[in-house]
Simulated assay, not measured.
Amino acid sequence: MGAIALAAPARAAGPGDSPILKRIAARNAITIGHREASAPYSFIDRDQKVEGYSIDLCMKVVEAVKARLEMPSLELKYVPINTTNRIALVANGTIDLECGTTTNTLSRQEQVEFSPIFYITGTQVLVKTDNGAKEVEDLKGKRVAVLQGSSNEQSLRMLNDTEKLGIELVYAKDLGEGALLVASGRVDGFAADGGQIKVYAATKAQPKGALKVIGRLLTYDPYSAMMQRGDLEFALLVKRAFADAFRSAEAEKLYAKWFGPLGIEIEPELKTAFAIQALPQ
């Protein structure tokens, strides 16, 4: 006897018991938190429009909210955020959904809820294109720049000590200075967030093609969107929207839209993450 397919129950319109959806309906607006200069993830373009890969994915949630509340003219508001205030603005309800470059960690899950993972990065190394190194171990005895106090410094220092690589760590104040140290030959590499240094190498290296990123991910830093904790209905709506984007390959298309022009192809780890999170309805 063949299996009987059971139809999924229809989802009721309206906010239901969701505090976040009730808040959105009362405001007649959904508020998105965004970064101002984290291209191509979340940034303000030359026309003062909020754009980016993270933003486009979050728009899938916005459309789902409009459909759920039956409010097609729901206003969309944007609030700029940074690394120091983003969690607080989500936790206190100032923004409904944060769409930027936030790493999903267990400690942060004590404060906020996260969407499915939509980007995977980690510590990698920026070097000159003519550098023959393929992994950080190939820089044994060399000078490598890091951002002081960063997880990238911690991971490199641990590997350096464990493998007795004899790498001399040099502190850079920011991404631009770290890259400049490499370009000028004052250091042999710069260990930092792989996604960010790939974008830097593709868009700011002078001359074009002078820098490249090498090595496996020394850390695992998955990006997710943030929302308030404790609202299971809204969290499920967000998960559905992302799962739909993964299942339909729309997420891969958005990745190609934003990273393709930079010559950055989607990593196998991220494709696997999309497939695993493409849950059925």
Rank of each mutant, 00 (worst) to 15 (best):
Y255H: 12
A210K: 07
Y220Q: 09
Q206T: 12
G209T: 14
V170T: 07
V125E: 06
G178E: 10
E250K: 11
V136E: 08
V65T: 08
K140M: 11
E250S: 13
S248Q: 04
L21I: 14
S248W: 11
V90D: 02
K257L: 08
T103R: 13
I44L: 00
A10M: 05
E110D: 12
C99G: 04
K77D: 08
V112H: 00
K140V: 12
V61F: 02
I30R: 03
P207M: 10
D47H: 07
K128E: 12
L232Q: 15
A5S: 09
A179K: 12
A275Y: 09
P261Q: 09
I30A: 11
I87A: 04
D17T: 15
M227S: 13
E269W: 03
E51D: 04
K257R: 13
L6N: 10
T129K: 08
E63F: 04
D17W: 05
G149D: 10
I266C: 08
T121H: 00
D193E: 15
V62T: 09
I4P: 00
A8R: 11
K60D: 09
A205E: 02
E177P: 01
F274D: 03
Q111V: 07
E137D: 13
Y255M: 03
V213Y: 01
G189N: 03
S151M: 12
K271S: 13
K253W: 02
G189V: 12
S155P: 01
A29K: 11
G215I: 13
P9V: 13
P207S: 10
V90C: 02
A5Y: 07
T123H: 01
N131D: 13
I197K: 01
Q111E: 14
L232I: 14
A245F: 02
E110V: 12
A13D: 06
E137C: 04
T123Y: 01
V170L: 07
A64Q: 06
L89D: 06
L279Q: 07
K257H: 05
A25G: 04
G16S: 11
C58Y: 02
L89H: 04
T123N: 01
V144Q: 09
G149Q: 10
S150F: 14
G185A: 14
E269M: 15
G52C: 00
A191R: 09
R27D: 10
S151I: 15
P19E: 03
K60C: 12
Q111N: 08
Y220L: 08
F114D: 09
V90N: 03
G166A: 08
L237A: 12
P40G: 00
A235D: 02
A235L: 02
V62I: 15
F242T: 13
V136M: 05
A201S: 10
S150L: 08
P19W: 06
K164D: 15
R86L: 07
I197H: 01
L175I: 03
D138G: 05
G2S: 12
L69N: 00
V90G: 00
R240V: 13
G185S: 13
A172T: 10
A205Y: 01
C58F: 03
V187G: 05
P72E: 11
L181G: 10
Q109K: 07
Y255N: 03
K60S: 08
Y171H: 14
K49G: 01
L147F: 09
L89M: 14
G260W: 01
A256N: 05
F234N: 02
L156P: 05
R143Y: 15
E70A: 09
R186D: 14
P80N: 02
